[in-house]
């Protein structure tokens, strides 16, 4: 899976115990330096206290670098943050142990886009019959990824190297050249349609198909599962 384009890169040149707070689409991203966890934690809380009311109510993602953290460390930090009116929703880490800890506490371990899906919907899994859709009114370029438990509608192109993973149907008002997965939660009735359907790879439920080589004028097509195989048909108005 490609990282979201706005994912900040881990910064290897951080000074010890230097804390950076950045604004990102999903709220605030806090980059912690290296050092003793208790000191870092203290420094972070002090810095947040200095910012005072300004940050109150913010959604916070924490990049802890290489630090190996146990449930008690993260749990107490989360409490400390919530006392200050801050909501910790994600912990990014280079350590698998810390990632596991974070997941145990119900925290995200990557910056997905709440714009496309609320965390609750993900947690509840299968979304059969859900009629919710997300509208993406721009071209998805290589490296972009949209994941949504409901339907996905794109007005624009989906370029090679971009991907759409939807629980429901995928509709592309444009050229579909990237990877698309409809019915990703197992819905075999999901369909993919596009004005120009030439994905790198098309998946519906657990079936995978490649686009055949095609010449001539593009035409709108709908792909669906028929007898367990992906079939694409021209769309006739």
């Amino acid at each position: 899976m490609h990282p979201a384009p706005e994912l900040p890169l881990p910064d290897s040149s951080l000074q010890p115990s230097k804390i950076q707070i950045k604004g990102i689409k999903e709220g605030l991203l806090v980059l912690l330096g290296e050092g003793e966890w208790s000191e870092i934690r203290q420094a972070l809380l002090e810095q947040l206290d200095r910012q005072g009311e300004f940050l109150r109510g913010a959604r916070l993602a924490l990049d802890v670098g290489d630090a190996i953290l146990k449930a008690v460390d993260l749990g107490s930090l989360r409490d400390g943050l919530s006392e200050r009116g801050l909501y910790l929703w994600a912990v990014l880490s280079n350590s698998p142990t810390t990632e596991q800890t974070a997941q145990m506490l119900g925290l995200e371990t990557r910056l997905t886009k709440p714009r496309y899906a609320s965390m609750d919907e993900y947690a509840h899994g299968g979304l059969h019959g859900v009629e919710e859709a997300v509208m993406v009114a721009r071209t998805l370029r290589s490296g972009a990824s949209v994941q949504y438990p409901g339907h996905v509608v794109v007005i624009g192109d989906v370029n090679p190297g971009a991907e759409i993973i939807a629980g429901g149907n995928v509709v592309v008002w444009g050229r579909l050249r990237g990877l698309v997965h409809a019915g990703a939660n197992g819905d075999e009735g999901a369909v993919v349609c596009a004005l120009d359907l030439r994905p790198t790879q098309l998946r519906i439920s657990d079936q995978i198909a490649l686009s055949p080589k095609r010449k001539g004028k593009p035409q709108p097509e709908i792909a669906s599962l028929r007898n367990g195989a992906v079939v694409a048909e021209p769309w006739k108005p």
């Binding site: 706005e6 370029r141 290589s142 190297g161």
Partner: peptide, 13 residues
């Protein structure tokens, strides 16, 4: 061209 597309996306973001 694929890499250019990725870069254009990053520049936009």
């Amino acid at each position: 061209v694929r890499d250019a597309d990725r870069i254009i996306g990053l520049v936009e973001s």
